[in-house]
């Protein structure tokens, strides 16, 4: 080995490169194989998606062979054990939770992001950001427990006729869970607005607040809206908190003080319950799952549209 190295030393660099290329033919094979392996991995996720969709849709069709789709969409009662399948009850539960969660998460999340991106010194940012991230790392079952044993008792002191299981408490806690996500994504979007835009406005005599609201936020709007869309999807899909704290009584209502049931909550209840394979109730969870999927799909498409519509290129 040493002797061949010494031998190589007498050659010019270009000759040595040529020689190395010849001895490293095997590298070329790796160059060809690796991309194919990478492609394979990418395809796996496509197949899994297609597989899930196939299962979801085929079982959903079975369900609609037994229950009319018109009843499913227009009926307001969801009492599967009495053969009433009106998805509106579950949808209203989900929307109630989502709206409450967003009322909590958007103001707090955006305000935190504005503070972190525009006002906080590096030192303060280094302290607050990790704390926000800890909040994001708490298991949702703990949040559910927190809603039931802390938020609900506090709320019931303010609202005396609050049900023990209720949408308000669960919605607030789902909102708290989502705050770090909104804050972090919004902060990313704001931080990536180039400083020269801030300077341009400051040099015109704008105050920090005017720069934030009239330059930075509009420039970051597409990223911020994308964060809202992700947050809404997350709230729609949240399962554990609502299963624990929101109750299991499907109701077509907009009253947050009552016990309700969300789409996810229903799926958990049936999937972990004793509904037999092949029964209408069993198939109904696929129909609910498809509805859930459509909701998040529409959310994502809407977000993409809004992002493109409001984009300020910089």
């Amino acid at each position: 080995m040493a002797s061949s190295k010494d031998g190589n030393k007498n050659l010019s660099i270009s000759e040595r490169i040529k020689k190395n290329k010849e001895t490293r033919k095997s590298l070329n094979i790796i160059e060809k194989i690796v991309p194919k392996l990478l492609l394979l991995c990418a395809i796996i996720s496509v197949f899994v998606t297609v597989g899930i969709l196939y299962t979801l849709l085929s079982e959903t069709f079975t369900f609609f062979a037994e229950v009319s789709i018109v009843e499913f969409i227009t009926e307001t009662r969801w009492q599967p054990w009495q053969d009433s399948f009106g998805i509106l009850s579950l949808v209203s539960g989900t929307l109630l939770i989502t709206v409450i969660a967003m009322i909590v998460a958007i103001p707090i999340g955006v305000a935190s992001a504005i503070f972190l991106s525009e006002y906080a010194t590096d030192k303060v940012r280094r302290i607050i950001k990790p704390i926000l991230e800890i909040l994001a790392g708490i298991p949702t079952v703990v949040y559910g427990f927190f809603a039931l044993t802390f938020i609900t008792p506090v709320l019931s002191k303010i609202i005396p006729d609050l049900s023990f299981f209720n949408a308000l408490s669960a919605g607030i806690v789902v909102g708290i869970m989502i705050v770090p996500m909104v804050a972090s994504l919004t902060e990313d979007a704001m931080s990536s607005v180039p400083n020269h835009l801030r300077y341009g406005a400051l040099a015109l005599g704008a105050t920090r607040l005017e720069v934030t609201f009239k330059v930075v936020l509009p420039a970051a709007l597409s990223g911020i809206i994308a964060s809202f869309a992700l947050a809404i999807s997350r709230a729609i899909g949240e399962t554990m908190i609502v299963s624990i704290a929101a109750g299991a009584t499907p109701k077509f209502t907009a009253d947050p003080t009552q016990s309700i049931q969300t789409m996810t909550g229903y799926i958990v209840q049936v999937a972990t319950g004793d509904a037999g394979y092949g029964t209408t109730i069993y198939y109904s969870i696929y129909a609910v799952g498809t509805t859930l999927f459509l909701f998040t799909l529409v959310m994502n498409l809407l977000a993409q549209y809004i992002t493109r519509r409001f984009r300020e290129e910089y």
């Binding site: 020269h196 835009l197 341009g200 400051l202 420039a219």
Partner: peptide
């Protein structure tokens, strides 16, 4: 802010708002 209202500035890189 008052100072910067009276004393404007043009930067090295053009920086119009988007």
């Amino acid at each position: 802010e008052e100072l910067r209202t009276k004393v404007g500035m043009v930067f090295q890189q053009p920086n119009p708002f988007p």
